[in-house]
Amino acid sequence: MKAPRIPMEELMGSGHLACQGCGATQAMRFALKALGPKTALTIPACCWAVIDGSFPHSCIELPIFHTAFETAAVVAAGIKVGLEMRGDSETTVMAWAGDGGTYDIGLQALSGVAERNDDIIYVCYDNEAYMNTGIQRSSSTPVGAWTTTTPVDNYKKEPKKNMIDIMAAHSIPYIATCSVAWPEDVIAKFRKAKEIKGTRYIHIFTPCPTGWKFAPELSIQMARRAVTSHVFPVLEITEHGQKIEVWKDFEPTSVRDYFKPQGRFKHLTDEEIEGLERDVEQKWRRLLAKEKMMASIPGME
């Protein structure tokens, strides 16, 4: 057999409580393979607070601090400082929060950490709603989607908040987005982040079969189509927010193909989908223009 594509070491085990086909679980497995055993986590209220296991058990062989919903970033920063004071500068501390815990309630704590450039990796695993409490909208929920608080006759009209720009505005050393469909890319980005000091923000796209209402076997397919349809761009922002590199080396697919298997978009009419397709394409073009523009600034070539 060939050499394994990703490290063999498993720091996340079986028996956990995630739904069938959970993308957030794959994300954690890849991240831990990249970071290795010298890692400590904070997890706020979110699916992962449950997936992990019931007291006194955990599917993760690493120290985890379960935090209040809004505090993942600061608790992680505190742990990091505490470790430093005890002479451990080696351990990576990672805050692992959902989109609700990142975009909404945890935003001020994250902003504070990022502004101080505290030495943690902050991960937002994005399943585009408050899944743990029963699929309520978050500011990450995409326009057009159904959730229990944006029902079909009043589906979400507001676009997904641009979390990446918010983080870039903090001038932190490393920002990356990735999708669980490309494990090697996920692992490479976590490894890169591990070697950088300061606040590192990784945003990982993790489909949720239960909340998005699609068959669990399509989980990776959704993670792939989100990227190839330009709905979720995979990128890196370095040089303290000044350099963007967008991944473009794939065969584009249609937004419609991405929407189709997902029950949360089922109510959309053809015209509505066409409108959303135009939105996605416009945002993608703007992103590419921005990448070019920033690269053209003297001193950034």
Partner: peptide, 20 residues
């Protein structure tokens, strides 16, 4: 028998999720 602070004492491997 409980630890003073809530903490992890074992893995989840006892949970045979194959039954799902």
């Amino acid at each position: 028998e409980m630890p003073i602070r809530p903490m992890t004492l074992g893995s989840m491997m006892w949970n045979l999720t194959g039954s799902w």
